[in-house]
Design a protein around this nucleic acid. Structure first.
Lengths: 333, 333
DNA sequence: CTGTTAGCGCATTCAA
DNA sequence: TTGAATGCGCTAACAG
């Protein structure tokens, strides 16, 4: 920058102003600086700038697995708002390695980003965050639990109600022998969905077969394994509620491998309404989350936090919707 | 940090050393500092540190769409090496908005990351990068073109050969009326795949029906539209080569909607071997890219660049493989 | 409108 | 093994 200033015959301050508030520089000077900058291919060292100003213009979205297509949709909403508010969005995949916790905690504590959105991530921070005197701006989209920081602002659907709705749909079709595939043991993301399942069953006067409530780790492979195990038991269920669409995909494959047909032999219910749900064979009945909306509201919320505003309503519930397609059918008499 | 130093009764230098080279501090002093740090929840301002040292420990992966499950697999490889080399990986979705080009260019030019991996991204930089006196460390995974920087190090499969192999597989099954769905007009990612298709056809003495070579934008929706258009024409093809698996998914849906069956009525060939290929109904025949390997090698390559090593072999070709499943079958007599 | 001055938080000399 | 002094590149007062 000093160099640019010299070549252009102005002071560093002027060059600085050229970048930060071009209007405050006389147009003649401005064009001269512009020329030199262009020629030298110079860009201000943003690190120094961030250092000076204490903010970076960067927001990091922490996701528990970028593979999940549901997150893709949420990201779309986040990206839209980010470009509107001139923030740069960077994605950090968490849970990939345990070490990453310290890394991430350090990252946020040392203000390398202005704020963080937690997207289905499971407490990606180490304890030192709790002890920090300033809690950095954090917003939770969908579900996440940060021990010691339970009251972070969040935006999500009512998973309990949605889990109930999904189960009720199956019940209304006459199913009673219903299995439920959840996330990994103790998964935060699917806990409430499963609770909704249990409540609906209870209200229908049915007992949950615990052997049919299996963890599926939210992945295709997990869904396969869980389904395989369930199908191998005696007294097959007539319907399976998969607490996300990825696992439903795994269920499809395993059911086909077993020579069964959906929905004739068994009904499958998903959760998320990802872009795959519609093109599966048969198209998947599922719970639609307003993914983009979640992303948009989440980022707006975070920006309020960054600007130091008080959040009056720390939990925003957006609405879900049952989408009926062809993977569920009335129980065959 | 000054504060920590005061409370602990040492100098800032000592605290600095505590973080960067703990062994150079007497253990008594060390534990005292540790205690204070713990109590205050203090983390060194990494921004200042980066500013001072000129490096961030951050590598940004630029992808053209995080939704593509193929990228998820590449990321797995990248993450593995990153944790080995203690780099923090951040993902930036490009092409989301045109403005992002300047943003990204500025980002890299101002050294907010130590290096960049381009993952199927289409020239996400503005021209000012070319003019820069120092080209920052950039490695290309799969395909990407940065005008003016054509000779960046890259790691990918031989897409021409792979496109040929895919087509030959269909030819060997007796198919002659073959359609090909590519990326958006002028897509870099699929250009060579399509060229492989054309070469194989030519070698077989067949003429390519240009109406059957359709752009599919690499997405499910794009695959659907292209398939729909192709099916509506007279003289249906007996096989479709989709240049990625996502589009094959779209083709599946559209073919089912048309009342046709795979592979009985039409064979479908994919490309990527994503995790969905295996669980599709029927399982998809496709070209497998060694995604994790691409990610791993790419990051190793980038690190060499960052350390200022000369790259002797700027283009690394890894091997692909034809994976035959159930979506392709011999042409019915 | 422009230049001068000072200092952000840290790592790195150099002495002690 | 520790401390004091210097400066990284930039922005934010303040003067001119």
């Amino acid at each position: 920058m000093k160099e640019v200033a010299e070549v252009a015959g102005v002071s560093v301050t002027t060059v600085s102003r050229y970048f930060n508030d071009p209007d405050s520089v006389k147009s003649a000077t401005r064009s001269k600086v512009a020329e030199v900058v262009q020629e030298m291919g110079f860009a201000p060292n943003r690190i120094a700038r961030n250092f000076r100003t204490g903010s970076t213009g960067i927001i990091v979205v922490v996701v528990s697995g970028i593979g999940d297509p549901f997150f893709t949709d949420v990201m779309e909403g986040i990206n839209r708002v980010a470009s509107e508010l001139s923030y740069m969005i960077l994605i950090k995949e968490a849970d990939a390695h345990p070490v990453a916790k310290d890394e991430l905690t350090n990252f946020i504590l040392s203000k390398q980003s202005d704020g963080i959105i937690l997207l289905g991530a499971r407490s990606p921070f180490s304890d030192s965050l709790k002890n920090s005197r300033v809690i950095p701006p954090i917003v939770i989209c969908c579900e996440a639990v940060v021990p010691g920081l339970e009251s972070l602002p969040a935006v999500r659907i009512d998973n309990l109600a949605a889990g109930k709705d999904a189960t009720k749909h199956l019940l209304q079709l006459g199913h009673q022998k219903i299995a439920c595939i959840g996330g990994q043991e103790g998964s935060i993301l699917t806990r409430e969905r499963e609770m909704g399942f249990r409540e609906a069953m209870k209200e229908a006067g049915l007992k949950v077969n615990e052997a049919w409530v299996a963890p599926g780790s939210l992945s295709i492979e997990g869904g396969r394994k869980a389904t395989r195990r369930i199908l191998k038991m005696g007294g097959k269920p007539t319907a399976i509620f998969c607490t996300n669409d990825e696992m439903a995909l795994g269920a499809y494959a395993e059911i086909a491998a077993a020579g069964l047909r959906i929905p004739d032999d068994i009904s499958i219910m998903g959760y998320d309404n990802t872009r795959y749900a519609e093109v599966m064979t048969p198209p998947l009945t599922t719970i639609a989350q307003p993914a983009q909306e979640i992303g948009e509201h989440g980022l707006y919320l975070l920006c309020s936090l960054i600007q130091g505003q008080q959040i009056t309503n720390p939990l925003e519930i957006v609405s879900h919707k049952l989408v009926v397609r062809d993977s569920t059918a009335p129980l065959r008499g």
